[in-house]
Structures are given as structure tokens and as C-alpha cells.
Amino acid sequence: MTISNHASVPETIALPPKEFSRTLYAYVVWGGLALALLWSWAPAEMDRVTYLFSDSGNMVEYASGFLTPNFHDWDYYVQEMILTVQIALWGTVLSIFFGIPFAILSSSNVAPIWIVQPVRRLMDACRAINELVFAVLFVVAVGLGPFAGVMALFVHNLGIIAKLFSEAVEAIDPYPVEGIRATGASKLQEIIYGIIPQVAPLWISFSLYRFETNVRSATVLGVVGAGGIGQILFESIRGFYYGETAAILIIVVITVTVVDLLSQQLRKLAI
């Protein structure tokens, strides 16, 4: 069976030529990346890469210090690690709770442009400033301790949650919302019955992911005195207690892995 038995088929069929603009675009993107890497080489002191090998003796000695983790104070480390997770939990939940209204207000398919733009810029500001910087600020404001860490995570994540959640809202199917509107429902009811059910799976997934990230972030908040395991981690590094440092790092890695696995299971259940 042939496709044609009357028209003559040429021996070779030429491929249509590549679009010039797309070829050019590829050159510009890859060439630009190469240029940017070259430009950043010296400022980033990438030439020091040889030091990794030239003083390999020192490196080996340094690394071998970590090979014998010292779990003598393990209960103290675990206690601090649990505190770290508790800080992350409160920071995440607060940022979700307050992030939802901001997310709705920064969705262009829900709110008018003169609300969307200012709210988005405010959220940009929350996001742009690192949680460590916020932690330093809150330590000054509310004193040393875990609460400063919670507040730092909360404010930084508020911006992230608002952005991620509003992107989900902007991608919804508008017709079910119209169906709700046609019943005479109020605007808030349209959001609750028409929008939230549609975005719930994505929102849950984003929230769990942010919780994982916050557990990781919270492990360094202690460096500036905002509570958690970061404080003892930083102290043991500065004091050259390699064994203790290794033990703390192992506990951090195990905790982050467990949180990761748990949230994956939760996500599967929710969606």
C-alpha cells in the first residue's frame, strides 16, 4: 500500500530550511552565557580553584577531622534540631495564612490592576530580602531567640507564597467561576467556591515544598542568634570542633531527608 501511485515522488525530499531568527536566537543566548561566565571569572576569583589541590595535605587533614563524628551531646543536638523544625513550622504556617489574601490581591484575574501592582511590589520587597537579613533585624526588634527566626521566615516566605499562589490563581479555568457568579454569589463566595477548589492541589504542593525549604533555612538562622541548631553549628565550626560539627551536620541531613520524604507522602495524599 503506497500513499501515492500516480504522482511521481522525487528521489530526495529537502527538509524545509531552518528559521534564521531561531538560529540567531540560539547563538545570542549561548554566546551571551559564555561571555557572562568569562566576565565573572576574575571577580569571582575562580583562578583560586588550584588551591583545592595544591594544598591537598591540608584539605585531607581538615576533612579527616570530620570522619569521626562526636555524638557525645547528641540529645542536645536533637533537641535543637526539633526546635529548628518548630521554628520552620510556625514561619511556614504564618506565611501561608497571611499569604493567601495577598496572593488573591496580586492575581490579575481577580483584583483590578491598581491593587495588583502595589501588592505585587510589596511582595517583591518581602522576597528580595533574605531571611538572614530579616533575622538580624528581628533579633534587634524582638530580642535573641527563636521568635526572631519565626518572624524572619514568615516575612520572607510571605512574598514567596503570595507569588506562587497567585500564579496558580491566574492559571485557573474561569468558566466554573462564572457558573458560581451566575447564581448571584458575592465576589468572596466566587473565590471560595470557584477558585480555591481549583488551586488547592497546587497550593498544598507549594506549601509543603516551602516547609521543606524553611527547615533548611532555619538551620542557619541560629548563626545570627535567631534560634535553632544553627547557633551550636556555628560555634562548633568556629571552635574547630570537627567531630561535633560532623555530628550536627549528620543530624541536619537526616532531618531534612525525613521532612522531605514525609512531605512527599503528604502531597500524594492531598492531590
Binding site: 468558566y175 462564572e178 458560581i180
Partner: peptide, 10 residues
């Protein structure tokens, strides 16, 4: 509506 416009997940 033609596409029913129900909220699928509810």
C-alpha cells in the same frame, strides 16, 4: 452552560 461550569473538585 455548554461546558457545565461546575467546580470539578467539589
Amino acid at each position: 452552560f455548554q461546558q457545565f461550569n461546575l467546580v470539578d473538585r467539589l
